[in-house]
Amino acid sequence: MSRAALLVLADGRFPAGGHAHSGGAEAAVKAGRITGADSLESFCRGRLHTAGLVSSALAASAVLGVDPRLLDEAADARTPSPALRTAARKLGRQLMRAARASWPSTELDALAREFPKGAHQPVVLGLAARAAGLEAVDAAYCAAYESVSGPSSATVRLLSLDPFDATGVLARLSPELDRIADRALEAARRVADEGVDALPSASAPLLEIGAEAHAAWPVRLFAS
């Protein structure tokens, strides 16, 4: 394996569509829940421990060889908001294109055939990591990091937040990212014996509600 492949996969410039999504930050900014660096940090911490943990465990499970169809169903079950399910599948489809171009693999081809309109993004992320020769822990980190890096860069655009402050938020969350990746990996390892019910199902109701409201706005900067 090449550990450096993780840098390629986790790079914010990896062309997989993430730039058009705010991870709920746009709705939270509009509602006054994110107003600066401190509240961005709280928002990101909440997202990391809920949606981030779930995504991280799904991605790690895919690397370990759990059937991606089961993982996709598990992701659906853990995503109450139809708008978020749609966004996750759109991002999964976009990631699939970039992943197949970067690390051609029969498993990615098979998943693309099975889900022509996209599987949930963390599932695709895990299979992409697997195709790149990465390990489950790498995919767990990548998914956990994406769960906070997206809202952070979106908030720089939405609030004209100082980009150094936004990056400081991500740096301060690093120890928690380690712990989330560990928990996700531990859950993913249990899936072989216990099935996908062993996956975490933490949820953030405000993220789900905010996503539904956001999807109905006539004017918005981000797709989700």
Binding site: R13, P15, A16, G17, G18, H19, A20, K90, Q94
Partner: peptide, 11 residues
């Protein structure tokens, strides 16, 4: 969306 990450447009 038209240059650096064209995936949404390709879809």
């Amino acid at each position: 969306a038209i240059r650096d990450d064209i995936s949404a447009n390709l879809e």
